[in-house]
Design a protein around this nucleic acid. Sequence first.
RNA 1: GACCCCAUCGUCUAGUGGCCUAGGACACAGGGUUUUCAUCCCUGCAACACGGGUUCGACUCCCGUUGGGGUCGCCA
Length: 451
Amino acid sequence: MKKVRFAPAPTGYLHVGGARTALFNWLYAKNTGGKLVLRIEDTDAVRSTEESTKAIFDSLEWLGIDWDEGPFFQSGRKEIYRKYAQELLSKGLAYESDEVKGAHKAVIFKLPDNRKIVVRDLIHADVEFDTSVLKDIVLMKSDGTAAYNFACVIDDHLMGITHIIRGDDHISNTPKQILLYEALGFPLPEFAHVPLILGPDGSRLSKRHGATSVGQYKKEGYFSKAFVNFLALLGWAPGDNREKMSIEEIIKSFSLERIGKKGAIFDVKKLQWLNGVYIREMSLEALTSAVLPYLEESGITNKDTDEDHFKFIISLVQERLKTFSEITELAGFFFAKDIEYDESAVKKYLLKEGVAGILGKIINEIEREDAFSAAALEKSFIGVKEEMNISNSKLIHPVRVAVTGSAASPPIFETMIGIGRENCLKRLKNTLSFLNAGKFPFKIQGPGANA
RNA sequence: GACCCCAUCGUCUAGUGGCCUAGGACACAGGGUUUUCAUCCCUGCAACACGGGUUCGACUCCCGUUGGGGUCGCCA
């Protein structure tokens, strides 16, 4: 039985690189019918925090990654590490440091001279190191806790890990760990070092490239299934051109052999596209509940809005959404008390000859008609069009800007129905008075916003 | 700097010596549908880093160069 592990240090939120490592481990376990162990590497008492641990659990849960054993905390296993350190000490393979840095004496592993260590890696070929380029390995720190390479080796052995799947950045630790496996008399596990996730400039993905924590992507309104799908395709490919894959399909096709050796740049554009694909396939119910928190948070939901009406509005923007959070931008005007206008839309469609007259006419037509349906609206629009002898677009565009504040919206009749008769009338009249006053409440353009 | 890893379109990748005038997806550009936007459809753009070998034949194998990345903590 294969057994893998995910072993994050709780010194910050779950990084997307860590998330992918966790995912690959999880996928490997699922694919082979093996087990996944979760181990929290909190030997650094100063930097490890409970919040981080919690954030990691939250993110793993959001991603849908569960584990079969653990979580084990290294902070609770000090005695175990101490025992093995003592063993190496008494065998003469390790020595105590003379440097006094803390309450204890650090225990350090003495490296053999000029030995070649070959790391057999499932992703890379064999990688050879010479011990002459390595330094002695700290086993126990002078604060009495175990150092990474030591705790890692002992735990991986004691927990029965058969395959160590971890980031590429650990490859240079591996020869040291192999030496420790040997010294301790532990059998060697298999290693698979997956390439790192890179930022747009090709260097390791970090904060300066933008969002790096899984929590951030959740917050920005990405659907966990889309995110996982995207992550799986970063450095791994099924080999048959599939892009959108269900988690079951991914599990079924997953293999270590198909993981690439090259670092992969995190392409947010592709994530957005994939997220849009998932959103378009969501049920209205699911999408509505996914999107609701964003509307509530920005305070634009209208409590009077009934469920069906709400869903109707969601259905209008569903295919336009790339992330859940965009709902406020795309559907905010349906709920807003007073709309703000996009400056360039006003210039383009409202500040034109005859627009005031056209808006006045459509107000009349709508007021004269009791019904407020697509059919009724169409009748009103045709009425104005014929009476004023104007083209459809001469009418539709100004009305759209008048009722939404924007030049882009879902189809005009549905949009108006979503806004409601009274609100439409009110906005039309407001627009008319702004037009007369020559002054509009313009939307503040955020950075990157385009008219 | 030392050691290690990596190298196909801008990006993610397919490709394991002939199937390659190198395939798909994202992005981008143009067009159609929608008198808006989005969706959808069509078209286009665009790559084997370079130089040597090996071979009847190299994107695929070997060597070198260049470029990029990672690691060099009593952090993990």
